[in-house]
Design a protein around this nucleic acid. Structure first.
Length: 213
DNA sequence: GGCCAGGACACCA
DNA sequence: TGGTGTCATGGC
């Protein structure tokens, strides 16, 4: 079976259903989680968010007022706490410049928003795209490891790095940010179930699928 | 008990 | 540009 990005998304959604990939009540919670989850199991992130919530109610201004050592203590379960505490403060301070008004920030930077995010310490391509999709409501393709593995399994040649895949894949016109959110959740959960080992893919509903883009 | 997860950065050639 | 070492916790 041959798929386009659009029909692949529809197929995965039909087979797997909505994933509810990012468990968060607010956008600031997504932003915090996006930093903490870098190369880390979500289970560990959930621990950090729980204690962080107890201490600060996840109010960014309260987090910004924490001492460095206190912040490190709170996010410790997520690992890489030295880097992540610095990243978190950088992102929150940047968002605070516009009072966490995400629409205003979008208007301010326009198409340059991604580059602005990348300039912040600790925010690379994947985290930048995650923030664009889940915080700034933009339809971006998140070319993470699971996406790379999936697209490679579907026959895509240049899918072996974030940037290569990002250049290869363009979301269809009219693809909504909600669809981009869901697509990412579908891809990552598909990967967890069917791409842990190369042979698993053969048992999936995409076993005979190829991507025609 | 080693391996790895919902990455990014510094350093090197 | 691309490859490697480092950062760290907790589950399996």
């Amino acid at each position: 079976m041959k798929y386009t990005i659009q029909t692949l998304y529809e197929k995965m959604l039909a087979e797997m259903g909505p994933q509810g990939w990012w468990p968060a009540e607010t956008k600031i919670e997504v932003a915090i989680g996006a930093i903490l989850v870098q190369n880390t199991n979500w289970r560990n992130v959930a621990r950090s968010l729980a204690v962080l919530r107890k201490e600060t109610a996840l109010e960014p201004q309260r987090i910004l007022r924490l001492s460095k050592d206190k912040l490190i203590e709170l996010i410790r379960p997520s690992g890489f706490y030295k880097n992540k505490s610095r990243s978190l403060l950088a992102l929150l301070a940047w968002l605070a410049e516009e009072d966490f008004d995400y629409a205003k920030i979008k208007r301010k930077f326009g198409a340059g928003l991604r580059k602005e995010l990348l300039a912040l310490y600790g925010i690379g391509e994947e985290t930048a795209d995650v923030l664009l999709v889940y915080v700034f409501d933009e339809a971006e393709f998140i070319a993470d490891r699971y996406a790379q593995r999936l697209m490679a399994a579907l026959g895509l040649q240049r899918a072996d790095s974030y940037r290569k895949l990002k250049e290869e894949i363009t979301l269809p016109a009219g693809f909504s940010y909600q669809a981009a959110q869901e697509f990412h959740g579908l891809i990552d959960n598909f990967g967890k179930h069917y791409l842990k080992h190369p042979a698993d893919f053969a048992n999936s509903f995409l076993a005979d699928a190829t991507l025609e883009y």
